[in-house]
């Protein structure tokens, strides 16, 4: 099955900015705290949330260690790492191979289940078009089968095939022909046996990693297109939308704020601790480009923080706020860091 292989970790590091591998691990496997999200924002990794939901975290740490031993990464005293010159060369090679054009799909949808669903749709539609009912089902997933069954009950097998063929042709016509072939090589269907990623890699004389990434890229963009164009097939895709509790909670708190509620009022209403509400707001500040920073940070506070904190945001620590901590809470301090990061990236 397509997966993101360990060589790819190099793609995430920089020769300029020292980055913390643990943040990457937490983001990729969707173990999110506000601190993870903040540093994810600083490192520009937020698009990659949930890319590897079932990642073996111990193996990840081992792989990073190995990349350090191979002198691809250089470990700093504070636990961050920098990309070395060798690592950079390797990274350039990786970037040339293939990349994910729509990684954000992974944060919002269970892409790995959707890959299975697509394979099932293709096989069922294919065999149906040849009027064959006896075949080995290539996908052993109960949920996918149930979702498909529901759709077919409402629309019929013929519509499935027609819709699917139309969408596939439309989508693939705009892709590189080799990528399109890689995408199709995963499908089982009438008198069609899928190839393993290894076999595809050997046939094309490219790396298995490149094949896997191509598959993930095209699969994720294909489902995205089905959703964005409001395809009749889209309801099957949206069934696999991730339950993004974190995001929803943040949005809810933000809505209350914009409707004029104060933080103590929200605390009372929601029966949550103040610290939880503040964390929701920090998350909302990271997720929303139009977050109302001015409601929480006055101009004086911004000027003060601008004066006491160094230019490189990555070096900031709350302790640097020193004697002003009574006036500037951690919440305000972090919010200011988010605001500054946003300002920088907009420039």
């Amino acid at each position: 099955m397509s997966k993101v292989s360990e060589d790819n970790w190099l793609l995430f590091f920089s020769t300029q900015q020292a980055r913390r591998p643990a943040v990457l691990r937490q983001l990729l496997s969707k173990r999110l705290s506000n601190s993870t999200l903040f540093w994810g924002m600083r490192y520009q990794w937020l698009a990659y949330i949930n890319l590897c939901p079932s990642m073996d975290t111990q193996a990840f740490d081992q792989q990073i260690k190995l990349l350090c031993q191979q002198k691809m990464l250089l470990k700093q005293d504070d636990g961050t790492v920098l990309l070395t010159a060798d690592g950079q060369a390797c990274q350039a090679q990786l970037q040339a191979e293939h990349s994910l054009a729509a990684p954000q799909v992974f944060a919002n949808y269970r892409v790995y289940d959707l890959v299975k669903l697509l394979r099932l749709l293709v096989q069922v539609a294919s065999e149906a078009s040849w009027k064959n009912a006896r075949y080995y089902v290539a996908v052993d997933d109960f949920e996918c089968q149930a979702v498909l069954k529901n759709w077919v009950r409402a629309h019929g097998l013929r519509a499935l095939k027609e819709q699917l063929v139309t969408e596939l042709k439309k989508f693939l016509a705009l892709e590189d022909p080799q990528d399109a072939w890689i995408f199709c090589s995963q499908f089982a269907g009438h008198e069609t046996v899928p190839a393993t990623t290894k076999q595809v890699a050997q046939a094309l004389n490219i790396s298995q990693r490149a094949v896997e990434l191509t598959l993930l890229d095209l699969n994720s963009r294909f489902v995205l297109e089905l959703i964005q164009t409001n395809s009749p097939l889209a309801p099957m895709i949206t069934h696999f939308q991730s339950k993004n509790a974190l995001y929803q909670k943040s949005q809810k708190t933000l809505t209350l704020i914009t409707r004029g509620f104060s933080i103590p009022q929200i605390v009372q209403r929601s029966q949550l601790k103040e610290s939880t509400i503040l964390e929701h707001l920090l998350n909302a500040a990271i997720f929303n480009a139009d977050f109302p920073f001015e409601l929480f940070l006055s101009n004086t506070e911004r000027q003060l923080l601008g004066k006491i904190l160094p230019a490189d945001i990555d070096q900031w620590q709350y302790s640097m706020v020193g004697e002003y901590q009574a006036k500037i809470s951690f919440f305000k301090y972090r919010l200011y860091a988010i605001w500054r990061t946003r300002e920088q990236s907009e420039r």
């Binding site: 293709v122 539609a125 294919s126 078009s129 040849w130 095939k161 699917l164 063929v165 596939l168 042709k169 693939l172 022909p177 399109a180 072939w181 995408f183 199709c184 090589s185 499908f187 269907g189 009438h190 008198e191 069609t192 046996v193 190839a195 046939a203």
Partner: peptide, 18 residues
């Protein structure tokens, strides 16, 4: 024979034209 390298042919084989 190895499967065709042309994705259009793969699609053609998968889905019968009505």
């Amino acid at each position: 024979t190895p499967p065709s390298r042309d994705y259009r042919q793969v699609l053609q084989k998968l889905f019968r034209d009505d």
